[in-house]
Computed example of a mutant assay.
Amino acid sequence: MARVVLVHGIAQQYEGPESLGLTLGAALRDGVQLAAKLTLEPAEVACAFYGNAFIEEGTRADDLPPWDAKHVQMGLEAELLDAWFQRAAELEPSIPPLDEEGTRNLKAAATSRALQVEWVRARLNGLAKAEFFQGVAKRFLVGELKQVTRYLDEPPTWQAARAAVAEQIGADTRVIVAHSLGSVVAYEALCENPDWPVTDLVTVGSPLGLPLIFQRLSPLPSDGLGAWPEGVLRWTNVADRGDIVALVESLGPLFAPGPHGPVEDKTITNGVKMHDFARYLTAPKTGTAIATGLQQPPA
């Protein structure tokens, strides 16, 4: 089995484990080689694929409904949309300020369906102008909101995602590198399986610190701190400061410390592709964290 397992994020239903593995595996091997002069063979890297957990059997992404503002549900979907919008507005001056109606708070919008749609539409229109979401159609953006909600709220979905990670873990697996929603999947899978031989967790572009996700983690945080995944020796978190998904870029203060100290937070710059998994993987700080896990003796 692989020494390193990659866990992708949302919106990968177009892909498959082999196609993703070719692209992301090459980026990871480049990053480790450039950062630490460590050469990995393709067979030493595997991709845990769970994109198919979000589609019905026998369908593909072309079956995505024509979602728009009226399909965003109040609650987690609306809260996540608002969090993305507020962060994008902080980072990108290209996003115009909302007018008086657009700034209506979520509690007020919840009083009528018409106000809800107006509230959602204002934020979708704003995000459509963000460089971060450039080229992403609104229906796909709504689809991304729904994938996060489904993972957090639907047992069959999170069970399938965590099972996809488990399938790739073998006696030689030492490092898990997880991106975006995949960092939530990997974290929860590790917490469920303290007997895994994984010694190092590397999260990139992670939403784990976002309160609406942090407060729903399994296991639930205790006394304001998330659990450290038992069995993991080191946890490195890498974030681009322009990455809207990694809203809270420092995870160290949010999780209990591990055997070698708290989560080690690092910041990088991915250029115009702030959230791109491949760019995170080729970053020297990410490559160094992966190489550290591979070069240290097992626990």
Rank of each mutant, 00 (worst) to 15 (best):
K129G: 01
G182N: 04
T292Y: 01
S250Q: 14
V72S: 01
Q33W: 14
L201A: 07
A161L: 09
D172I: 00
L190W: 02
I176T: 04
V238H: 08
V272G: 02
R87G: 07
Q147D: 04
P259H: 09
L24D: 10
I268F: 05
T149E: 05
P194S: 11
S250F: 03
E264V: 11
L294I: 11
E92G: 01
R241F: 08
D223W: 05
L40F: 14
G16N: 15
C47N: 13
P97R: 13
V7L: 03
L251R: 08
A227K: 08
G231M: 08
E249T: 08
A27D: 11
P42H: 09
Q168K: 15
Y50K: 13
P257W: 12
P262K: 07
C191I: 03
G226H: 10
T269R: 05
A137Y: 00
V263F: 04
K37V: 05
D265F: 08
W158E: 12
L81Q: 06
D265T: 10
P155Y: 07
P66L: 13
R29H: 10
D68Y: 11
K273S: 08
A137P: 02
A166P: 05
L81D: 03
G143N: 13
A256S: 14
V72R: 00
A122F: 07
M274N: 10
L76I: 14
K146W: 01
V148P: 00
F49N: 10
G9Q: 04
G75A: 10
E264G: 04
P194K: 12
V117D: 07
G287R: 02
G231W: 06
Q215G: 10
D243E: 02
R150Y: 01
L24W: 12
C47Q: 14
G224I: 04
